[in-house]
Design a protein around this nucleic acid. Structure first.
Lengths: 215, 215
DNA sequence: TACCTATCTGGTAGTGACTATCACGGTGGT
DNA sequence: ACCACCGTGATAGTCACTACCAGATAGGTA
């Protein structure tokens, strides 16, 4: 079957990616990001530099490859479309963080923590990560835009560009608060509760009406 | 005099920097940022690649070199320390934007516009710019921190880390709104009023109590 | 005027991330 | 047993950026 075929291939591919990434992050934390060359990573992982570039097109992807954006988008789509935009986004961010750092994801949490600490300490990674967050902001606002267009399909949106602009500002502020919380969490070595930190950061921006995540 | 000496040198230096930067941005807008090499810029500006690197340590600095951060910090220090943090930062951002895009700065405004459009369109520049904004957020919060320590020198700050965290979240949200406004302004080809856009973006985040700039 | 020193400038030879192109080998399906 | 395809690999090259060194020039001084 073509399906079993591609799933097997995909599994092997995912496995080698995990191996490469583990070696890369181990070397980055030991020697520093800039002081580690791609050739050294390839050698440590037992592959050729070519293969390394096939799996991770850039050096930054070795640290920043994750599916947080998709996770947030899923939570955003699954949550009820009620309340102000900022509250909807806040709920999605807190829910995604809960899923990523809950007690049943200790390995993921540790992995996330190390990568965040690398990201904070390395200018190139910090910059790329902030640009990823910017792309995520655009994805969120366009998803919300489509949402609104679906529910009021007959409404020709008279003040639409203004609403778009306001939604972009609100979403980018939410993600800025998220980033502040993640940095603080990483600086605490993950000892504090990330969802709670995100809630407090959002409360500092929007006021105290932001709710705690629904269990 | 040593002063006149260094002033003359500094003037010549600033002049060559302006020349190099003008050629660079002309080439970037004509051919694209990535498609323009540093050697081509050096040749167009009539200097050697070495001199180019002495004046602009990285290719990104050819577009992103500005003193906006200092400008905002000055407005922040000069403005009265009254009202919530977010309002103080908002006033400083709007005042700085007014100074940069006012009618008596048409050249600067045009130059700023072209560079912003390059920044938006080029991933590497976008990422660096967002990291610069992050550094600016840290500068703002540490300046506000010192401010508070000066005024209540006798107060040993019982809840200080929490206040720091909230100030960071608030400042990063302000800068996120600023970025949203700048992007919109650049997409409008500078036809709209940047200080007004910033005020609207901040109002979308914090509510409508943000004031218009004092003339 | 002659000297001296700091700064500006330029060339050479590298390092390292990343790409294009070609070729080989093993795996999956007919 | 054959074929097609995907993953892997080597080679050579581009480009941003960095020492290291040498010459020119402009400011201040004896």
């Amino acid at each position: 079957m073509a399906e079993r075929h591609s799933t097997l291939r995909a599994q092997r591919r995912a496995q080698t990616q995990r191996t490469i990434q583990a070696h890369a992050i181990r070397l980055f934390t030991a020697r520093g990001y800039d002081a580690t060359t791609m050739n050294e990573i390839a050698e440590a992982a037992g592959v050729s530099p070519m293969t390394l570039y096939r799996h991770f097109p850039t050096k930054e992807d070795l640290v920043l490859t994750d599916r947080h954006g998709e996770l947030i988008a899923e939570h955003l789509a699954a949550s009820p479309a009620e309340g102000p935009l900022t509250h909807r986004i806040a709920r999605a961010l807190i829910a995604a963080a809960t899923a990523l750092t809950g007690d049943d994801a200790a390995d993921d949490r540790e992995f996330l923590l190390v990568r965040l600490q690398l990201m904070i300490a390395t200018p190139a990674l910090r910059a790329r990560h902030l640009d990823n967050q910017y792309a995520l902001q655009q994805a969120i606002t366009s998803a919300l835009h489509d949402d609104a267009a679906d529910s009021d399909a007959a409404d020709p949106d008279p003040a639409d560009p203004d609403a778009d602009f306001q939604a972009q500002a609100a979403a980018s502020a939410c993600l800025a608060a998220l980033h502040t919380a993640m940095v603080r969490w990483a600086e605490d070595d993950g000892r504090s509760d990330l969802p709670h930190l995100i809630g407090r950061a959002l409360a500092a921006v929007f006021g105290d009406e932001v709710v705690e995540p629904a269990r």
